[in-house]
């Protein structure tokens, strides 16, 4: 890839700003996406229609939930290491740490799918069971999307090779902006996952 200060026909500064602004706007949209799940949880819980919000036999498996959230939190921590490495131009550490963060996100998604098989209750077992399945599924979809985003960043940096070492190059500035934008959304998603975990597994 040739060095360039134009990205897709536009000045690179505009492209860099697009990542920053786009990621924040994406967070704003995600806030309301998750808000609908949170509202459902609180609304149905407060109504407790026919005392069927949370029958005693319905118990969310906390071990699985803890494992899922732990994978996400560790992924965010490892991503922070990767991001710091990139800022310090330690490309080798960046690549390995970003790969680990990506794999941990996938692990969390896989654990979530396994949890569905081990749940012990069906989605029709009351309001809580419905909310549990839908909300964790909503988080799962977003985590998979974020894993895709991180993979594209990682793959781009692998393909760019050593040219990324020059921090003045367009590709490098774009990568840094992409990483920053991803980080903002990823920290938000992980924070939502932690909050979701608290509500679903402990508050119920």
């Amino acid at each position: 890839m040739a060095d360039q200060q134009l990205i897709e026909g536009e000045d690179i500064q505009a492209a860099v700003r697009n990542y920053w602004v786009g990621s924040r706007l994406w967070i704003a949209g995600l806030v309301f996406y998750f808000l609908a799940f949170a509202f459902s949880f609180l609304y149905l819980r407060s109504l407790n229609a026919n005392h069927m919000w949370h029958p005693a036999k319905v118990q969310a498996p906390a071990v699985w939930g803890t494992a899922i959230v732990a994978a996400l939190v560790v992924s965010a921590i490892v991503f922070t290491i990767a991001r710091t490495a990139l800022e310090r131009n330690s490309l080798s550490i960046w690549r390995w740490a970003a790969l680990v963060a990506f794999l941990l996100a996938l692990t969390a998604a896989a654990l979530q799918i396994v949890e569905y098989r081990e749940l012990g209750f069906g989605p029709g077992a009351g309001g809580f069971a419905s909310t549990f399945v839908a909300w964790t599924g909503g988080v799962l979809v977003v985590v998979l999307g974020m894993a895709y985003w991180l993979e594209t960043i990682w793959a781009t940096s692998i393909r760019a090779g050593t040219t990324l070492a020059d921090t003045s190059r367009g590709e490098r500035r774009m990568l840094a902006a992409n990483v920053e934008g991803f980080g903002a959304v990823w920290y938000f998603v992980v924070a939502v996952a932690v909050a979701t975990y608290g509500l679903l597994y402990w508050v119920g």
């Binding site: 149905l44 407790n48 229609a49 029709g124 009351g126 309001g127």
Partner: peptide
């Protein structure tokens, strides 16, 4: 799921 059926914990 029973989000919108009141007989089973929804509304």
């Amino acid at each position: 799921t029973t989000f919108f059926t009141s007989g089973n914990g929804g509304s």
